[in-house]
Amino acid sequence: MAKRIDVKDLDIYYGSFRAVEGVTMSIEPRSITALIGPSGCGKSTFLRSLNRMHEVIPGARVSGSVLLDGQDLYGAGIDPVSVRRHVGMVFQRPNPFPTMSIYENVVAGMRLNGGRGVRKAEMDGIVEGALQGANLWNEVKDRLDRPGSSLSGGQQQRLCIARAIAVKPDVLLMDEPCSALDPISTLAIEDLMDQLKKDYTIVIVTHNMQQAARVSDRTGFFNIAGTGKPGKLIEMDETSTMFSTPSVQATEDYISGRFG
């Protein structure tokens, strides 16, 4: 659980288009790392490259390396499917499986991977653990057989987090997890992230600078020079430093709202 990630000289391409250029960063275990930057600057693409989710788009490829506790995710013979079992992901919009109940959604990772041999009692334990880990247990324990889509948006997002942690990943990637939620649900998710960081390495992409300042330990700022140019990591530092005395002018402009 909770491994460190070291990214070295990572370039990400869609076909011949270079979307992200030359990213080098270290992500500490048991911490929250926030990625901020304007739309289209490649931070989501970069996040997806950390569990090879960007490969869903045909023609996507990378050069450089992403080391998970020293093991290169892009090394020869590495199966992207097994990478994603170690590096889980939560998406912008809550996306519980509509054909499954709350219970089935949580164990989806095991069931879909062919976990037929798991005993019912063990499965129940995993469901309770994951839902408690996602701060959702008390709200849904009496209606586990209801469809996942019957929950509110914020609850659905916590269900998705429960689903992601039920497979016990090493790293949790969150792609703007609160942008479709109201402030109260956002607060619930932020509290949850604070608890989860005890056990997981968390990387979050956010457009909400207050959120980055509130929850993260370290912050990375991405930017692009212009349309059609690749996105770059401008600077990365402790969150408190980034938001008080950033070393690059562009970061200060963006954070203080003088961007563009």
């Binding site: 989710m53 889980g88 998406f91 509509p98 990772g109 879909l112």
Partner: peptide, 27 residues
């Protein structure tokens, strides 16, 4: 079938084939 469901399944480390059989087709 929304692409988000396929992505949700891939992100759990489920192979494409199992995603189709267990998520896409039932949906």
């Amino acid at each position: 079938v929304p692409n988000e469901l396929r992505e949700a399944s891939y992100a759990l480390g489920v192979s494409q084939w199992r995603t189709i059989v267990r998520v896409v087709l039932p949906t």
